[in-house]
Amino acid sequence: MQYQLATFRLDGRLFGIDVALVQEALRLDQHTIVPHAPQTVAGLVNLRGQVVLLVDLRARLGRTPFGPEDSPMMMVVNVDGEPISLLVDQVGDVMDVDTDRLGPVPPTLEAELRDLVAGVYALDDDLLLPLDVSLATRV
């Protein structure tokens, strides 16, 4: 069975999210910092009148969080009917993948990633990691 993944890069890795869960991709502009929030919460952003949580996906995956000098992109996803914005390095293309080609999560993958990906798609020159959005947005 085939389905589509909206791809993005984060810290040199290629990730994918089920395209049906992606609302839009935008460049991060004005946002509000939330005092005393966990490091995984980058703040809040107003998207056409709706306040949306910003999740720093670098921090969520145990990496160095985005800093003020960075220019991350936002992938706005729907989780349980609510929009949540994931901060990523770069938004990629939509890829068709075959569920029959999904391989197991390699034991060499970092523990923070192993818990959040459904497996691995081996591409010609890269690995595509399908992200479990419901787990990745827990802060």
Results as ranks from 00 to 15, higher is better:
M1Y: 00
Q4R: 11
R9Y: 11
L10K: 01
D11I: 06
R13E: 11
I17D: 03
V22M: 08
V22F: 01
L28A: 07
D29V: 12
D29L: 12
H31I: 00
T32D: 14
T32N: 09
I33F: 12
V34F: 04
L47V: 15
L47F: 11
R48A: 12
R48D: 11
R48I: 00
G49F: 09
V51P: 03
V51A: 13
V51C: 06
V52S: 01
L53Q: 13
L53Y: 11
V55E: 07
R58W: 04
R58T: 09
A59E: 04
R60H: 03
R63A: 03
T64V: 02
F66I: 08
G67R: 02
G67P: 09
P68V: 05
D70H: 09
P72H: 05
M73N: 13
M73S: 08
M74T: 04
M75N: 07
M75C: 08
M75G: 04
V77T: 04
G81I: 03
G81C: 07
G81K: 05
L86M: 11
V88E: 00
Q90I: 08
D98T: 03
T99A: 15
D100Q: 13
R101S: 15
P104F: 05
V105K: 02
V105C: 10
P106S: 05
P106I: 10
T108V: 14
L109T: 00
E112Q: 06
D115L: 15
L116V: 08
A118N: 12
V120N: 00
Y121S: 03
A122V: 12
L123C: 12
D125F: 13
D125M: 12
L131Q: 06
L131W: 03
D132R: 15
V133Y: 06
T137P: 00
